[in-house]
């Protein structure tokens, strides 16, 4: 349901989008005449406060750190509660995941500010916490869906528990876990942009500045890059999912 299959058979879309994205990121100042023509009433038609390269890098760093931590913690937590030793925590975790995902990400981000102050830390922690939920959920679901027969067969072959986990359970659950990681990254990418309102430097910065200052060109520049980045990551994940070994079902 998530992979636009026929689009991915072509070598093109993803590569072209990446090229377009890099070109736009580097060449935004060169587009000044275009934006000046589109918005003749603006004094400064191109965002120059920071370079778009630094915005993209800062944005990606924020997402990579928060989502990276969320993936590590989320997958470990998911593995833990599906082991006999951690089964006791499963119910609580399920409740947290179900309740937490009802909370809008923006509200979580806003609440991090009173708790942690302005700047990078609240954004990072809010993104981490929110990104954790889909990863945990899909890890639990993915591991729980591994057929009991596969597990028993592996044990019957003399595999130890860790071997069963690494060689049977995780490969079988990989597709579902990856889907959770994808959701987490895409949500964090969008929420990170809103984190400009709490003082982070991201691709949201030109958008927010443009919105508050009535500069539609700034908004457009930030929005185009942000939208492209999201589509690129999404297609990348779709490609990654296709590269996974097919689950026999």
């Amino acid at each position: 349901m998530t992979s636009p299959r026929q689009a991915l058979h072509l070598p093109g879309p993803l590569a072209w989008l990446v090229v377009a994205f890099i070109a736009l990121t580097l060449g935004m100042p060169a587009l000044r005449p275009v934006f000046a023509a589109l918005f003749p009433y603006l004094d400064r038609p191109v965002y120059v406060q920071e370079s778009f390269v630094s915005l993209v890098l800062a944005h990606l760093e924020l997402v990579a750190v928060s989502s990276g931590a969320a993936v590590v913690v989320g997958v470990l937590a998911g593995i833990f509660v599906t082991r006999p030793a951690g089964a006791a925590f499963r119910g609580v975790l399920d409740t947290v995941v179900a309740m937490g995902q009802t909370f809008p990400p923006v509200a979580v981000l806003a609440l991090a500010v009173p708790a942690l102050g302005f700047g990078e830390p609240p954004a990072l922690i809010a993104l981490f916490l929110y990104g954790l939920l889909p990863v945990m959920q899909n890890t639990i679901v993915g591991l729980a869906d591994v057929p009991e027969a596969a597990r028993e067969a592996a044990a019957g072959l003399g595999m130890r528990r860790m071997q069963v986990l690494w060689q049977v359970e995780l490969p079988l659950a990989a597709g579902v876990i990856l889907a959770g990681i994808r959701t987490s990254v895409i949500i964090n990418l969008g929420t990170a942009a809103i984190a400009s309102t709490v003082g982070s430097k991201t691709l949201g910065s030109p958008i927010i500045l443009g919105l508050s200052g009535g500069n539609t060109a700034y908004v457009l520049q930030g929005a185009i890059l942000l939208g492209l980045l999201a589509v690129i990551l999404d297609l990348g994940f779709a490609r990654l999912a296709r590269a996974l070994p097919r689950r026999p079902s």
Partner: peptide
Amino acid sequence: LFPVLNIIQTIPSIALFGLLMA
């Protein structure tokens, strides 16, 4: 329809708002 709607869902809300503005 699904790929199109999928891509729209992928675009961050703030970017979509911005893209619709102009």
